[in-house]
């Protein structure tokens, strides 16, 4: 362990805002992308079922 304590870890030598602001933005981007992927898949499957059940095409 190179850190003296967990609070030293979180403060990142006083640069915590910049370090965690970067990692936090990445985490938000990844989670948002996964939510969008999931809902897009759900919508595509629903539409695909509707088409074949409705028999319009």
């Amino acid at each position: 362990m190179i850190w003296e304590s967990w609070s030293a870890f979180w403060s990142m030598g006083g640069r915590g805002f910049f370090v965690w602001g970067s990692y936090g933005a990445l985490a938000i981007a990844v989670v948002a992308e996964l939510i969008v992927l999931r809902s897009a898949r759900k919508r595509a499957l629903e539409e695909s079922h509707e088409r074949s059940d409705g028999g319009s095409l």
Binding site: G14, R15, V19, S22
Partner: peptide, 11 residues
């Protein structure tokens, strides 16, 4: 740079 360089691992 101190600790702030650790942004490099995602940047």
């Amino acid at each position: 740079q101190g600790e702030v360089y650790r942004v490099i691992y995602i940047h």
